[in-house]
Amino acid sequence: MPEADVLYSDVKFTRAREKGSETTSLPPDTTYSEVKLSKTQPPTEPRGSQQSAVPNERSKVTSERVALVLLSLLLAAAVIALGVTIHENAQTMKELQKLKKNLTDDSCLKCETGWEQHGGQCYYFSTRRSSWEESRSFCQSEGGDLVKIDSREEQSFLEKTLREKMDVADDKFWIGLTDSKTEGEWLWVDDSPLNTRLSFWLNIEPDNWTGEDPDGEDCVRMGEKGGATDLKCWFDKSCKASQKYICEKEAETGEYMVSCV
């Protein structure tokens, strides 16, 4: 236990005067008495507890710094990896574009001799006449079918091309559209229905006129030698009539193909 604080107190004691003594008072004797008073002190913590608290705080701060540094390093590594990936992807895209250009230059889609290319399709414009069914059979034997018109742009290409190929006004060409299965239900040769927004009937066509054939007019031909207003140059006609025709098939590559146009 810690020693008590020592306090000194000046205590005076006066002795009684003896009889017969002089009336002069003598100075009192002075004695010193040691008085010990224990000073109450608050309980003290063990030395070790205070000393260990500081290292614990330091350890905590150090761990947080280490974690922050590691997180920063990981983030930096991720940013670097992302940059490398973006750079590599950019290089890959350039190589692919270069390869695509080389392939297009060296082996572009082409059509056989006697066929005309437009976009990725090849078209054959006949010079002989035949019924709609016979015309279709010939197109199929060549690996295609009667033309199916999928866009206004394709209709424009065909309409303009036919102006040069028609000898007279009625020298029209079969296309792959018919309602022979169900009257009024117009289907392409692949059995897909006609999109009314992509139909190019002239005036009151189709009229299913029976003056030439009692069975009516179930097949479609096209062409206006003088040019069609708003590309409208479709006419229904008896499928038995003899007309020129347009075949269509996808363009290909190969030694027997003509140069790209």
Rank of each mutant, 00 (worst) to 15 (best):
F157P: 01
F157T: 02
F157R: 05
F157C: 03
L158A: 05
L158C: 04
L158G: 02
E159R: 08
T161N: 07
L162K: 01
K165N: 08
K165A: 04
K165E: 06
M166S: 09
M166Y: 02
M166T: 01
M166F: 04
D167P: 00
D167M: 12
D167E: 13
D167Y: 11
V168I: 13
V168S: 12
V168P: 00
D170R: 13
D170W: 14
D170V: 12
D170P: 00
D170H: 12
D170I: 13
D171E: 06
D171W: 07
D171R: 11
D171Q: 08
K172S: 07
F173E: 01
F173V: 04
W174G: 06
I175N: 00
I175K: 00
G176Q: 06
L177E: 03
L177P: 01
L177M: 05
L177R: 06
T178M: 03
D179P: 01
K181W: 09
T182P: 00
T182V: 14
T182N: 09
T182G: 00
E183C: 02
E183S: 11
E183T: 10
G184M: 03
G184C: 01
E185L: 14
W186I: 05
W186A: 03
W186D: 00
L187V: 09
L187F: 04
V189H: 05
D190H: 11
D191A: 15
D191R: 15
D191K: 15
P193A: 13
L194G: 05
N195D: 15
N195P: 00
T196C: 00
T196K: 13
R197Y: 08
R197V: 08
R197N: 13
L198N: 13
L198C: 04
S199H: 10
S199A: 15
F200P: 02
W201P: 04
W201T: 08
W201V: 09
L202Q: 11
L202W: 10
L202M: 09
I204W: 12
I204F: 12
I204A: 15
I204K: 15
I204E: 13
E205N: 01
P206K: 11
D207A: 10
D207E: 10
N208F: 14
N208W: 09
N208E: 02
W209I: 14
W209Q: 12
W209N: 15
T210E: 09
T210A: 11
T210G: 01
G211H: 12
G211V: 11
G211L: 13
G211K: 14
E212T: 14
E212C: 10
D213C: 10
P214K: 10
P214L: 09
G216Q: 04
G216E: 02
G216Y: 05
E217S: 13
E217K: 11
D218T: 15
C219M: 07
C219S: 15
V220F: 09
V220Y: 07
V220L: 08
R221E: 12
R221V: 14
G223F: 08
G223I: 08
G223Q: 05
G223H: 08
E224W: 10
K225A: 05
G226V: 07
G227E: 00
A228K: 04
A228L: 06
T229A: 13
T229W: 09
D230H: 08
L231D: 04
L231N: 05
L231T: 01
K232T: 13
K232E: 12
K232D: 10
K232I: 08
C233R: 07
C233T: 12
